[in-house]
Simulated scan of single mutants.
Amino acid sequence: MKALPESEISDAMLYYEQYFYEGQLTDGQAVSEFGTPKNLARRLVADYYMDEARDVPEENQKSPLGLAKIIILALLASPILIPVAITVIALIFAIVVTFAALAFSLIVLLGSFGFAAVICVIGGILVLTQSVLGGLFYIAAGIAVIGGFILLWPLVMSMVKGLKHWVFVMIRWIGKKTVGRKGVQDDA
């Protein structure tokens, strides 16, 4: 439970101590109801971060991979749900790879425009000695593409940030479907 703030740790310890005392549970009964202490701690950490991810403003959210790690740890806390955890790992991997491919393709597309613009300007300078109008055309076209590159750069970067946000939303949705508000759902 080291990943939790001190106040959350003390609140959780107090709650479960009272629950065990009032319910007069033996160690065996507590383990059968909540799992091992390690599994219970994983579920508590996952619950905390799932609730936190819902309430934190978008600019302060944890990374999608950090949230995915917490969801997977919570699923692995229950041996019954290991097949579900494997499926979730595969699904999260597919989402992250898709995001990376889309982001990479957008950046490569923009980079190719920048490279084409530079080649066009250099080619126009070289053509100037043979044809002034042809050289000026290529130089103007290169400068226009450079202008487009400069205008498209913020748009592409905001698209990449938007893709990252949607990956986070999808991973959080997967977490809500597999890790409930009260821990791992055992009705799988």
Rank of each mutant, 00 (worst) to 15 (best):
G147T: 08
V169T: 11
K176I: 12
Y16W: 11
L75T: 05
G35R: 03
M13R: 09
Y21C: 15
L126T: 12
A68Q: 02
L81A: 09
V127P: 00
A77T: 09
Q29I: 09
V169D: 12
L40F: 06
G114A: 14
F34Y: 13
I86A: 07
T87K: 03
S112E: 15
G134K: 04
D47L: 01
G180R: 05
G111Y: 05
L128S: 05
F104W: 04
G114T: 10
E17M: 12
K69F: 13
M157V: 12
L136F: 11
A116T: 09
M159V: 13
I86G: 02
A188V: 12
L44D: 14
Q130S: 12
Y49G: 11
K69V: 13
Y48I: 11
V118A: 10
K177Y: 08
I95K: 00
L163T: 09
A100N: 13
L128T: 03
D187G: 06
A3D: 15
S7R: 07
A41F: 04
L76C: 06
I86K: 00
K164M: 13
G111F: 04
V145R: 03
I174Q: 03
F113H: 06
I89V: 06
E33I: 13
F137I: 08
M13H: 02
I150G: 08
L109K: 12
A30N: 10
I119P: 00
R54S: 12
A100I: 03
F104V: 11
I95C: 05
Q24H: 10
A77I: 05
P5H: 04
S10W: 02
G162D: 14
L109Y: 09
S63W: 00
V84M: 03
Q29V: 10
I92S: 03
S158E: 15
L65S: 06
F34N: 13
A100W: 00
P83A: 07
G148K: 05
A117Q: 03
A74H: 00
V97P: 02
L44E: 15
S105N: 10
A30C: 12
K164C: 14
A140S: 11
F149R: 06
L65T: 04
L44I: 14
